[in-house]
Simulated scan of single mutants.
Amino acid sequence: MDRETKLSGFAFIVLLVGLGLSALFIMLFAELADEMLDQELAVFDAVIIQLLGTISSSWMDTAMFVITELGSVWFLVLMSLGVLWVLGVKMRDKWGVLFYLVAVGGGSLLTVLLKHFFSRERPSINETIDAVGYSFPSGHSMGSLIFYGFLIYLVIRTRQAPWLQWASVFGLSVLIVLIGISRIYLGAHFPSDVIAGYIAGTIWLVLSLVALEWIQWQQRSPVPPVAALRKVLAPVYRAVIDKL
């Protein structure tokens, strides 16, 4: 089996893993949503909110307000302009631009649809921290996971220095978690809203990246995807048939 076929077959398997991961997270989201509708998460939400209340202070209020703004619509839109400039002008990656818009724009639309579908009321209303409208799932959590997750993907894909990759992945991952915590701390969301936002964001981000990688793979690989998979699986199939 030639090296190109092996690489193509491996890429195909990676795409299948991505689709499988999305399916798993869809089931997790459905289970979480079902428990939310049945009021089975009330104790869990109350315990987490009470724990965060123990660290309440004036300086913590300020820190959480700043952190929550890093996941706000205005900030992500502003940062998106920079990402689009890098993808479109610096990298000349038209597919990257398209699927970035699909990931971020489509994720925003999906958030609105899910919020109106479940129509869960917020723990509190506060316009200064974008705590208006319905609560489930958390838009800040979902949007930040998609946006900063896409940045992590770009850092890894562009093959930066190892230390920069590790620092970026760690820093952006921590930021995503902190944004979710800030929404709970500030009373904008229940903990289950934040978890649901992360799950839904993961689903949409993975599907967007799988589609992007599939198209780019087809363009750069001389071996058609189906043909590559056939070459990879043919020896396995013959071995199974021989044993039977």
Rank of each mutant, 00 (worst) to 15 (best):
V14D: 01
S173G: 08
I215S: 03
W204P: 08
F190V: 04
G71T: 12
W166D: 09
S72L: 02
I176A: 03
G197W: 04
E213F: 03
L7N: 05
T68A: 06
F12P: 00
L164M: 14
L28I: 00
V47Y: 08
L209H: 13
L109Y: 04
S144R: 08
F75H: 04
P222G: 07
V174T: 04
D61M: 13
L24C: 10
L87Y: 12
W163G: 00
R238I: 08
S135H: 12
I48E: 02
A234V: 10
Q160F: 11
M60C: 10
Y134N: 05
I199C: 08
L101I: 15
R122D: 11
W59R: 12
V14M: 10
I13H: 00
Y237D: 06
D45Y: 03
I203E: 12
Y100E: 14
W163K: 14
I179G: 04
T62L: 09
E4Q: 13
E35F: 07
V174I: 08
S173Y: 08
I241V: 14
V226F: 11
I152C: 15
K6Y: 12
H116I: 07
G197A: 03
I156E: 04
W85C: 13
W74S: 12
E31Y: 09
I156N: 04
E121S: 15
A196C: 01
V236D: 00
L21K: 04
Q50Y: 13
L19Y: 08
V177P: 00
D45N: 15
S135G: 05
H189P: 00
F190N: 11
W59E: 14
G180P: 02
